[in-house]
Amino acid sequence: MKPAHKPLQFSVLENDTLLPFLAKVFHGKSRTGLKQMLQNGRVSVDGKVVSRHDFELNSGMVVVIGKPASKPSVSIPGIKILYEDDSIIAIDKPAGLLTVGTEKEKLNTAYSLLSHYVKTENKSNKIFIVHRLDRDTSGVLVFARSTMERDILQEYWHNENHEREYAALVCGKVDEPKGRIESWLKENANLQVFSSMRPDDGQHAITNWELVQQNDDFSLLKVTPETGRRNQIRVHLCDIGFPIVGDRRYGNGQNPIGRLGLHATLLSFVHPQSGKVMQFESPVPGSFIRMVK
C-alpha cells in the first residue's frame, strides 16, 4: 500500500514573488517544472490555489505544495483548459465562440467541444453550465462536472458569492481614475438592454471600474461587476460615454482590433467539494494593450 501523500508547507520569511520563492525551496528544479506545478493547481498560498508565477508573497504567508489536482494545461480545438478535477473545469474561452448552442449554431460551442473532450475519457462523462460569457467576450469560464456541483456553483452566482474581473478596452480617454456605475437594467422588444435610473425599475446592476492605461484615443479599464446581469458591463460603460471597442450593439462600432474589447481576466470562488478558494486567471489580450501604448 502506498503511503498517503502529505502536502509540503513553507513559511514565507520575507517579501518575495512566488516563482523565485519556489526556486529557492526546490533548489535545482527547472523554471519550466515550477511553472508546470503552478499550472497543475498544486500551489496554494494561505489556503487559496494560485497559478500566477508573479504572485506577490508577504512575510508570514504560508505556501503549500499539494498533490496534483488537475491534468496539465491542455489545448483542444478552440479552447485552452486552465484547470480540471472531478468537480469542475475552468477554460480560457476565445472571442467568437458561443458558450452554449443556439438554433443556428449547435456544434461549435464551448459546451459542445468540452462535452466531446470529457467523453473521450469516459462516454458517461458530462459537463453542466454554471454561467456564460457572450460570444464575443473571451476569458475565464467554468463548467461543473455534475448536477450537484452545478447547483452549488449556481447558488454562488445567484448570491454574488464569487469574484470577477474583466479587462475592457473602451473608446475615448476617460477623465477619472476610477468610478462606480449603478442603474436598473431592462430589455426592450428587440432584447436590447438599457438602463433606468428609477429604483426597482428593472434588475439592479452595479459596475466598478478602474483606469489601467490610456492614450488620447482609447482607455484600458479593470472592471469589477458587483452583479451579473446580461450585457451589464457593455451597457454601463456606454452609459458613461465610453463604449467598448467593437461593440456594434451598444457602442459606436469602432473596431481597430477586430473583436469586442472585453475579456474575463479573473474568476474566484469556493470549490464546491474541497472548500478551497479557487482563483483562475487569463492575461489581458495583447491587442488591448497595444491600443493604449
Rank of each mutant, 00 (worst) to 15 (best):
L169H: 06
L18P: 02
G33F: 07
I206T: 11
K71C: 11
D239M: 13
T224R: 13
V270C: 11
I79V: 10
C238Q: 14
I65A: 02
V142E: 03
V49A: 06
V62C: 08
Q203L: 14
Q203P: 07
I181L: 12
P256L: 09
A168D: 01
A205P: 00
L220I: 04
T99I: 04
Y250T: 06
V174D: 00
F269L: 07
D175E: 15
N58I: 11
G96E: 10
I289E: 09
K119F: 03
Q154M: 08
V235K: 00
F26K: 07
M61P: 03
D54I: 03
G78C: 04
F280L: 03
H162N: 12
D86F: 10
D239C: 08
I129V: 15
I152V: 15
L97H: 02
S70W: 03
P68I: 04
Q203R: 13
T137E: 10
A168L: 06
H131G: 10
D239E: 12
P68E: 05
Q279H: 09
I89K: 00
I91E: 01
P20M: 06
E103H: 15
V118D: 03
K293M: 13
R248L: 15
F242Y: 11
I81K: 05
A167D: 06
K80W: 06
P72I: 06
I244C: 01
G78M: 04
F21E: 02
F21W: 00
S196K: 11
E281Q: 13
E103N: 15
L153K: 00
D85L: 04
T265G: 05
E84K: 07
S196P: 09
D85W: 04
V193F: 01
H263Q: 08
P285F: 04
C171G: 10
Y117T: 05
L221W: 02
L98V: 09
L153Y: 01
A189I: 13
